[in-house]
Structures are given as C-alpha cells and as structure tokens.
Amino acid sequence: MIAAGLDPISQFELHKLAEFKIGKYDLSFTNSALMMLVAVALTVFWLFMSTSKRSLVPGRAQSIAEISYEFIASMIRSTAGSDGMKFFPFVYSLFIFILFANMLGMVPFFFTTTSHIIVTFVLAMMVMSVVVLYGVFKHGFGFLKLFVPSGIPMAILPFVTLLEIISFLSRPISLSVRLWANMLAGHILLKLFAGFCIMMVTAFGLFPGVLGAIIPFSLTLALTPLEFLVAFVQAYVFALLTCVYLSDALHPGHH
C-alpha cells in the first residue's frame, strides 16, 4: 500500500476523463490531453492579456510577450538566417507549447504531458516532416545534397554520406528522447526524494522521522529549481534544434 502511494512511476499514468472513439481507435480525453488543453488555454490567455493594449511603450506584461517574440525571432535569424522567419510561428508555437507543458508539470499533482515519449516523438516528427516536406518542395532532388557534404575526398564520400543519412534519421529520436528523458527523470527524482520524506515519517514516527527526512527534503528543495531550469532549457533546446534542422531545409549542402 505504501509502495503504491510512493511509486514514482504512478505519476505518469494516464486516466480517461471522457470516453471518445473514432472507428477502432480509442481517442479518449485523458489527463494528458487536459494538460495540453490547459497549456494552450494558458498561452492564449497570457498572450491575450499581454497584447490587448498594444501600447507603444510596453508595460511589464507586454514586455514579456515581446521578449519571448524577440527571443525566438533572434534564435531563428542566427541559426537559419532571415529567410527562416517564415517558420517563425511554427517554432514559436513549439517553444511555447513545450515550455508551458513542462512548467505545468512542475505544479504538484499536475500531469506532465512531455513525460510521454509518444508526445515528444510526435512533436519531433512534426519538425522532421516540415524539414523534409519543405526541403523537397523547395529544392527537389537538390535536397539530397544534405547527405553529400561538399569538399570531401571521393574515397570516403560514400562513408560520410552513410553517416549523414544515419545522423539525419536519428534526429527525431534524439530530439524526442532528449526532452522526454529529461522530464521523466526529473519528475521521478522529485517524487523519489519527496517520497523518502513521507517514508521516514511513516516508518519512524513524527519525531525521529522528521530528522531522517531532512536530507531527502533538502534534496527535493534543491532539485525543484533545477527542474524549473530543465523545463525551460529543454523547451529552448527543442526550439533551437528545430531551427538548426530547418536551416538544413532552407540551405541544404551548406555544411
């Protein structure tokens, strides 16, 4: 019973909130879907409140919205060039969605959408489909130059090309696993150390148990801000790598 309550994995379980089926697929609205909805709703609410005034001299809220805009815009300009700005809404949406999903996961008892590999994998596959579709649409067969770097001696060119293909194919995996594993590991750690505090108190009673809980409690205290940092950094890394990959679609053979 105690083990079930303190199980660090149980926080990742999905629960149906509303039954919904299309054909043979079970598309029920789950706690994960609820958190996605909350993330989207919060984003829209935040941007609505902060941009409704549109004042020339921004207030605090408007400044934050503008800083987030400039943050992503300058990230795209520096990695993919100014013609990468056509992907700006996509990258901004990805960044904000992942950031809000990660941050919502830090609220106690809230589900962390990005702690499920399928969610991060779909996000990564969205990026890769945009890269491939745009690359083929814009450059046709020229997009294949991505796999054949220029200035490589003929002797090792096939080997390098093979490596390039493998690295390209592993991108969605690395992109999705990086985000997922960070969120998963962080939440397991937090739950473990927080659970140790409870275990100490339940096993040894209030007085000696609290003393035993000091170390896991201080670790929880230290890990919490670290996890907030990870939540932001992972959203940033995801957006940054998206920009880098989009840069390949824009300028294949430039590397």
């Binding site: 789950t30 879907a33 989207v40 996509f90 949406s93 969605f97």
Partner: peptide, 15 residues
C-alpha cells in the same frame, strides 16, 4: 492514438 490525436488537435489550434 489518444495522445497523438489530442496533441495534434491542440497544437494545430495553438499554431
């Protein structure tokens, strides 16, 4: 399927 479906729905709405 549920997660893919709702992720796409909400992400496209957000986008």
């Amino acid at each position: 399927p549920s997660q893919i479906f709702w992720l796409l729905v909400f992400f496209i709405i957000l986008y």
